[in-house]
Computed example of a mutant assay.
Amino acid sequence: MMHLHALNPSARTIRATAHKAMAFAALRAPSSLAVRLTRYNHHIQRARELTAPTTKTAEDILSARLLLIEQAKTSDLLHHHWSAAFGAVAALRDSALIGLEHYRALLARIDATAEARISELEEVCHG
């Protein structure tokens, strides 16, 4: 049992206590033994992680900051690629619309030419 030495326990201590309570509740749950054991082990592991001493060395702090920088770079890179892909899709859509307009104009010219040829042939046949 964890003894609280302060009047206001930290959030980590409260969360660890909650995980321990969930672990013991998991043992009493109406589930299979494997499921109960898996849930118990998960919650106990989380409680241990939360109550472990948090002494950070300068190297740990530096590596954490480098990790945050890399995540930010990755996020910016993903945003850049997403924007580029979105722009490419918009350009393709616009070119498809332009191509559709050209196709419609071409069909109209073919129809006009076909109607002119048909009228010429009708004149030749009747004349």
Rank of each mutant, 00 (worst) to 15 (best):
E101H: 11
A25G: 03
R36V: 07
R15K: 10
A64Y: 13
L107Y: 07
L78I: 02
R109P: 01
I98T: 08
D94C: 02
A29Q: 15
R15T: 09
I110N: 01
V89M: 02
A25K: 12
R12Y: 02
R48P: 01
T55W: 08
A26C: 06
H80I: 03
A16W: 01
W82A: 00
T38I: 12
E70A: 13
R104N: 14
L92Y: 08
D60L: 06
D94N: 09
F24D: 07
A52G: 12
A91S: 11
S10M: 05
E49I: 11
S75V: 01
Q45L: 09
G99V: 15
L62V: 03
R93G: 04
R36K: 14
K20H: 07
R28E: 14
A21D: 09
P9F: 08
L67G: 12
R39Y: 09
R36S: 10
L50I: 14
R36C: 11
A21Y: 08
D60H: 06
M22N: 02
R39F: 07
H42M: 06
R48A: 13
A84V: 03
T57K: 05
H102V: 04
T17A: 09
A108S: 10
P53Y: 11
A23M: 05
A72D: 08
H42C: 04
G99P: 10
A72L: 10
R46A: 03
L100S: 05
T17D: 06
A108M: 09
S10W: 04
L66T: 09
L7V: 10
M22S: 01
H19T: 14
E70K: 15
I14Y: 01
R109I: 03
M22P: 00
L66I: 06
L97A: 15
A16I: 04
A21Q: 13
I44N: 02
T54Y: 08
S83C: 07
G87A: 14
R39V: 07
A96N: 14
K56H: 09
K20Y: 08
I61W: 04
L92P: 00
A21T: 09
S75Q: 07
A88M: 04
A47M: 00
V35E: 15
A105K: 07
D111V: 02
S75F: 06
L27V: 03
L106C: 12
T51F: 02
Q71S: 14
V89T: 08
D76T: 01
A96V: 05
H102I: 05
L106E: 13
R15D: 06
E101L: 05
